[in-house]
Every structure is written in C-alpha cells, then in structure tokens.
Design a protein around this nucleic acid. Structure first.
Lengths: 252, 252
DNA sequence: GCGCCGACTTGACCGGCGTCAAGGCGGTGC
DNA sequence: GCACCGCCTTGACGCCGGTCAAGTCGGCGC
C-alpha cells in the first residue's frame, strides 16, 4: 500500500508489525500464530491473506470505528496504539483498553452487531481489516482459524481482572506497568523499557483513578527506585518488586 | 432423568429450565435460540441433543468445576443459580458473576485450557455439559452453532461494565437489581420480583463493596420507596427510578 | 525570541465507603 | 423450650483517593 513509516524521534520505538510476503503473513499479526507457529497449512494462510485488507494510516485522534457503527469486521492493530473507549451521556469518557500491534479489536461488536465503543488512534496507526462474515465462513472450513478466534475471545473474557477488583492505586498501577511491559516484550521490545503512547489522563481513566493519583503514585514509585520516569518514557528498574506489588491482581 | 424437583418453599420460585423432548430442546437452554427461534434446522437440534450431557443435581456449595481443572467442556445452567469466583493467594474470595438458567459458564477457560475460576452452586443446581472438542467440531459443520458461540462470547466480553467503572454504591446496586430483574423476567418470572439466591456478602463482593454498604443502601432504597425487601425476597417498587439511578452504568 | 496552551505535577482539603464493633434475627440441633 | 451460629443490620470512626486550585514544564506557532 506504500504507506510511509515514521522512523525518527518518538515513533522509532513504537511497535510495528512488519508486512510479510504472500506466505509469511505479518509476523506479529493476530493470526500469525495460526498461520506460522501453530502449523496451520499454507491453504489457510493464503485464504486469510486474500481476506485481509490493510487500512490506514490513521492520524492521532482519528477513529478506526465509532460507537454505533454497524458491525462488519474485526481489526488487528498493525502499528501504533489504539485506545477503545465509550463516552457516556454526560460526555464523560470511559477508557476500556489500549491495544498494541498484533491485538484484535471489535470482538465485542459481534453480539450487538454494532460497535459498542470508539477505537481511536493514540499515534499514527495502521490496521488489518477482516470482514467478519467472510472470516466466520472461512472458520467453518478451517478449524484452526475457528480455534484461534475462540481462544482470543476467551482470553478477552477472562482478562479484565485489573479493572474488576477493588484494588489500591498502587496495585493497579503496578499491575498496569507489569502487564504493559510484558506485552511490549512479547512484541520484541527491550524488556523493561516502555513508551507510553497514552496520556496520564488516559491511564488514570483506564485504571479508574484520578490523573493526579497516577502522577503521585508514579512519583512515589520513582522515589522508591522501582521505576524511572521521563515523561512518557518509562523503565522498570526493579520489576520483581513491582510484580510483588501487583501480585493480588496478577496471580490469583 | 427423573430428578426430583423441589416445589415448595423458597425453591418454588427458583428458575428452572424445562426438559424438552427429542426435538424441543430445553426451552430456556443456552442453545434454545439456535434450535428454535433462529430457525436452525432439526439436524442441528438433533446433533446438539446427542452431544449434551445432563449433570447434577449439585447441592448448595458444591462445585461444578474448580480453578485449575483441565478444560474439557462448557456448561449451561439448567436450574438453580451458580456463582463463579476466584480465591486469591490469601484465601480472599472474589466473585465474578452469578449465572441463571440458560446462561453459559466456562467460556473463559478455552484460552488457558483450564478453568480460571470455581463455579459453585448457590442452591440445588442442574447443568448441561457440552464437550468442547465435540461442540467446536460440530460448529465447523453447522454455522448456526458457530455463530451462537461467537455471539455469546462477544456478549460476555462487552458485558462487564457494571464492575469496570468507578461508580457509586447507589449506582452499582441499582444497576445490579435492574439487570437481575431483567434476566429473571426474560426467563418468565413475574416482572419486578426477584429471589436473591446469593447472600449480601456475595452481592457486596461482586459489586466490590462492603457487605455493610449493601445493607445500608438497600435499606435507604426501601426507605425511599424504590424497592421492598424481605430477606432474600425483593420487589422493584419503582423500577423507573431505579433505572434512572443506574443510567450511568446501563446506558452509555 | 515570545506567548499560548495542553499535559503534567504538587499541595490542601474533604467526603464516601471500608473497617471495627456491637447487637438483632432466623434457622437448626438437641 | 433453649443454645448456638451464620447472616444481616446499624452505628462510630478513619483513611484512601477524588476534587479543587495553583503552579511548572514542554511543544508549537509566529
């Protein structure tokens, strides 16, 4: 598609999913595991490749889809970071999640048949679009695809512990940092360093805290030597201790 | 299967899914919609019927499955109420949900391949067991089944707003009552009346409040004439006002 | 350079809800 | 009947984190 890649400044560190060739699908793609690691045959790979549509780039603040849009496809983030959120009747925002390259968005739209939230680019973003009717038809023929969809949906059902519990601000923030660090690391970034694509306000909103509280806790974590903060660049100095703080959330 | 039904006292009001005959599957069953309302052919119905296994009854406090059990099947509640919960390292309980007849449990176990929580009977409970390998094989042949699974999983992904937001105790409790009332009504119970199968402590835990807070708010709701409480019997006296209280959670 | 503006930080205050503690109430066993 | 026990209720108090307000920092346009 000939899209430009920003390779200097802050975006140099932004995770990006590499294009594959016809038979090496995006290596960090949502279905990469199906196509490569899990030994699904080349047939599945080819069919997926025909089905997918590369969309973007979206500029910061642009929406991949909006609340109420008729559901037609799920998306895999290819590069950049996407925030999903709802806006309530009074116009207050409620952040549902942040999505890194390789992660799927739109799975919660299958049931209501319209997207129940906005998906907004936090930085320049590219996505892969999978028409859902086509994908589910394909899934009936290729069990590996069906399995992968079931697995990913199941994971989403189970993975909301961070928001669900009545945890302290320290626990929430520690768990947030540990989990985000893991997701960056899985995508090949130097472990222990992360670039926050989202504002303090977004983090606070996502964790159901006030922005001021996020500021204060980050500062205290830094004073305690647990992390090193420099604006939106962040290093996990003592990950084991952070993990210990987050245990009530992460282990259970 | 010849199981006994308790038809007196508190259990008279407990929702129960009626057995169907060979071609009229449980009318309130998880897949009832697939088989009947949605016009899936008799073939699908018959195949599902072969696949399902009726299990129970479980006595109050018994587990349908436990955290860590190897995943092999999803379950539909047939009668009674099931609580899902995790117990953290310190032995503290965290209630994840309450499940009425017709609702599916175990969907969050597909990905980790073991159940991530306990499913405990809050009163005498019967369930239908669907072997997951068999079910997903069937789903590749019968698109209606696959669609219904996708839809239900999607619904579970989206439906955690009650726990996720930073809502007040009034909003949480109002939303809880309204939603529970709806679910009872969908299952054919007189609208506006519900029997709480769970203790105040369980409700509080589920809503991330203290049991004392639940007591206090219920009392205030009653004093304001919104509800009528009698132990675990509860009537929604002014549902519109309750709904108004819960709007920040229910509408968005 | 300068001014502007949004994001972030820091401090002071306060209120909702959790915690602790002391009863009430109803069911069950003997 | 009576004692026991869990569930529930009610009151008093305190703390965590939200709110309000002021100030700082950094990027961008001109």
């Amino acid at each position: 598609m000939g899209e430009d890649r920003v390779t200097s400044g802050r975006f140099a560190r932004s995770p990006i999913a590499d294009d594959g060739d016809a038979l090496r699908f995006c290596s960090t793609c949502a279905f990469g595991a199906v196509c490569c690691d899990r030994g699904v045959d080349k047939l599945a790979l080819n069919e997926l490749h025909c089905l997918v549509e590369h969309v973007g780039p979206y500029r910061t603040g642009e929406a991949v889809f909006r609340t109420g849009d008729r559901f037609g496809a799920i998306y895999a983030v290819r590069s950049g970071t996407v925030k999903t959120r709802v806006v309530d009747l009074d116009g207050r925002e409620l952040v549902l999640g942040f999505h890194l390259p390789g992660e799927l968005i739109g799975l919660d739209a299958i049931h209501p048949e319209s997207y129940p939230c906005d998906a907004v680019a936090l930085e320049p973003v590219e996505v892969c679009r999978f028409s859902f009717p086509a994908l589910s038809t394909l899934a009936t023929r290729l069990p590996g695809i069906q399995q992968e969809l079931f697995r990913r949906m199941s994971k989403d059902i189970g993975g909301k512990a961070l928001l669900a519990g009545d945890y302290s601000s320290d626990e929430r923030l520690a768990a947030f940092l540990v989990l985000l660090g893991r997701r960056y690391a899985e995508r090949g970034f130097p472990p222990g360093t992360l670039h926050l694509a989202m504002s303090r306000g977004d983090i606070a909103n996502y964790l159901r805290l006030a922005a001021e509280t996020v500021s204060r806790v980050l500062r205290r974590f830094q004073d305690q030597g647990l992390i090193k903060v420099d604006g939106r660049e962040l290093a996990l100095a003592r990950p084991a201790e952070l993990y210990a703080l987050a245990r009530p959330i992460l282990d259970r």
